[in-house]
Design a protein around this nucleic acid. Structure first.
Length: 559
RNA sequence: CGGGGCGUAGCGCAGCUUGGUAGCGCGUACGGUUCGGGACCGUAAGGUCGAAGGUUCGAAUCCUUUCGCCCCGACCA
């Protein structure tokens, strides 16, 4: 492809409303343009990258027996009503009516439609297993689109669905997908990890996420450096840092106007880890007192899994239920349900005294209060691994893929049953598996760039090689470039040739921005000695090569 | 949805406090000189100042409403 014939609108300056590196570079290098919040136009270069990624996805999905199909993006409401998600999903679903007044929605995912198809077509255990996938547009009315291409309202997703006769069979397909995902992300040149994740509202039994470390990510994972335990902090278990057990008498301390853990901690010159943080929440109509150590954050999702939906208590409720104002709550002497983080089992602590402007020192679990024990804290750096005791670190990541064991939730709701060998009607056992190709591209940029621009991993770069004839008015340069362009193209290499009549500097700058892994620089001076330069975009290392040996040195199959 | 910020030429910005009819850099077009890391000189085109309403002799500037975009948080099947 010739640069002059390709639409590559590079920008000298980054538009002001871009923040994430991948967003800035995709705009500057002429890969995308924004249409509206969370809606992006993919320009020619980006489209090539997406095709590269999608090809890898197809190859690996086909390799595990996936069959590509294409589902509509516009869905009738009824199917979503049958699984209940029409009502549970809310504003994130784009809804509309057709001319006949029928409720419709735009697909944010395809469990329902895939299951609908299975329910009509799968009759016998002999029809199973099936793995169907598509690379299809999803639409979600995101509360907050952000970070350029990372969180958009319309995006491509590779989503596959497995249909099996049993949990064991599902387990096999689940593992096949996990293996395929590892191959996919490796081939795409990403640094990534597989972590345990919360099946959440997908209603499944087990799920994992594939995460690419990047400061632009939106999730945090806890990773054990020793045994490899890795989990989304949404569910990560951890053992908090141990504290030295104090030998305190039970005593009341006057703490005037000191309400927060931080304030009392400063006042008493005592680390926050010696405090009990007491948080009153209302679950349904019942108050629940949740306790974590002073240096911890209460984990809302863990609490939800324990006590169900809840909300923080209001000030008035707090006073009414506990008889004391916020800031001086302690776990002692209350009749309500109390749940506490495991780490409070041992040791003596400071907590509110249940009377204004007083705290107590020497509070002991089992003696002064008897809670239900659970893991209720947010894992943080420095905590210990629950599996091996190793040290946990927290990393910011971009979610690039996920796999779910769905079980029979959707098949039961949509009556996707089959007859087993005994002639019994059984619900199909399902899994669902997603990958966001645009997120792969964005993560690749986040992980591979420098001050000058993008550095694509070769497998997903828009081109393999960019040829830079530095002076288009020099006959020898042009002649050499044209021949090399033909020879490389004939050798099956994807080449972009910057044939624009631009100054050398402009070509260098644009080439670095665009990020094609290998640059071939053709300049008059070197040409006099019969040489051209091969430059590695990542290392900036340059190697001078004889013109007639160029194709050989550049062709990885030969070299 | 809560909090914050920003909308002025294709892009980046100034002008707004203290109203007087819009400017700078880059880019674009044309001419010339240049030609290995975003060249230089000259000429030119390009803006209903996000939109609507109001105040005023006069509004980019003051007031009201509204739309859009970004960031933080909540949410994220």
């Amino acid at each position: 492809m010739r640069f002059s014939q390709m639409f590559i609108p590079t920008l000298r300056e980054a538009p002001a409303d871009a923040e994430a590196i991948s967003h800035i570079l995709m705009l500057r290098a002429g890969y995308v343009r924004q249409l509206a919040a969370g809606l992006y136009i993919s320009l020619p270069l980006c489209t090539r990258v997406m095709e590269k990624i999608n090809r890898i996805l197809r190859e690996e999905m086909n390799a595990i027996g996936g069959q590509e199909i294409t589902m509509p993006v516009l869905h009738p409401a009824e199917i979503w009503q049958q699984t209940g998600r029409w009502d549970t999903i809310g504003d994130e679903m784009f809804r509309l009516k057709d001319r006949g007044g029928r409720d419709m929605c735009l697909g944010m995912t395809h469990e329902e439609i895939m299951t609908w198809l299975a329910s009509r077509e799968i009759r016998s255990y002999r029809d199973l297993p099936q793995v169907w996938y598509q690379i299809q547009t999803k639409l979600r009315d995101e509360a907050r689109p952000k970070s350029g291409i990372l969180r958009t309202r319309e995006f491509l997703m590779k989503d596959s669905y497995s249909f099996d006769v049993s949990d064991e069979a599902l387990g096999r397909n689940y593992q096949l997908h996990a293996d395929a995902y590892h191959r996919i992300f490796k081939r795409c040149g990403l640094e990534y990890m597989q972590v345990e994740s919360d099946p959440g509202m997908m209603g499944g039994a087990m799920s994992h996420e594939f995460m690419a470390p990047s400061p632009s990510g939106e999730d945090d994972v806890a990773v054990c450096g020793n045994c490899g335990y890795a989990a989304n902090v949404e569910l990560a278990d951890s053992v908090p840092m141990k504290i030295e057990i104090k030998d305190w008498e039970f005593e009341e301390i006057h703490t005037p106007e000191k309400r927060t853990v931080q304030e009392v901690s400063n006042f008493l010159k005592l680390s926050p880890s010696y405090f009990i943080k007491s948080i009153l929440v209302i679950s349904g109509n019942d108050p629940v007192l949740a306790l974590v150590r002073g240096d911890q954050e209460l984990h809302e999702q863990k609490l939800s899994r324990l006590i169900g939906d809840h909300r923080p208590a209001q000030k008035a409720e707090l006073k009414e239920i506990l008889g004391v104002e916020a800031g001086f709550i302690g776990p002692m002497g209350h009749k309500i349900r109390i749940v506490a983080d495991n780490c409070l089992k041992d040791g003596l602590y400071v907590s509110g005294a249940n009377k204004p402007h007083y705290h107590v020192k020497g509070v002991k679990a089992g003696r002064d209060f008897t809670p239900e024990w659970h893991d209720l804290h947010v894992a943080s750096s420095g905590d210990s691994c629950v599996k091996c005791g190793g040290s946990l670190t927290i990393e910011r990541v971009i979610e690039i893929g996920n796999i779910f064991k769905l079980g029979t939730k959707y098949s039961v709701a949509l009556k996707a049953y089959f007859l087993d060998e005994k002639g019994q009607d059984m619900p199909v056992v399902m899994g669902s598996y997603g990958i966001g190709p645009a997120r792969i591209a964005a993560a690749a940029i986040e992980q591979n760039h420098d001050k000058d621009g993008i550095i694509w991993p070769g497998s997903i770069a828009p081109f393999d090689i960019e040829i830079l004839p530095l002076n288009m008015k020099d006959e020898k340069t042009v002649e050499t470039a044209e021949k090399l362009y033909r020879d490389l193209t004939d050798a099956g290499i994807e080449v972009l040739m910057d044939d624009r009549d631009e100054r050398a500097g402009v070509k260098f700058k644009d080439a670095d921005l665009i990020g094609i892994p290998t640059q071939v620089v053709i300049g008059a001076k070197n040409l006099k000695e019969g040489l051209i330069e091969i430059k590695n975009r990542r290392t900036k290392e340059t190697q001078k090569v004889k013109v007639d040996e160029a194709v050989t040195s550049l062709n990885p199959d030969v070299a």
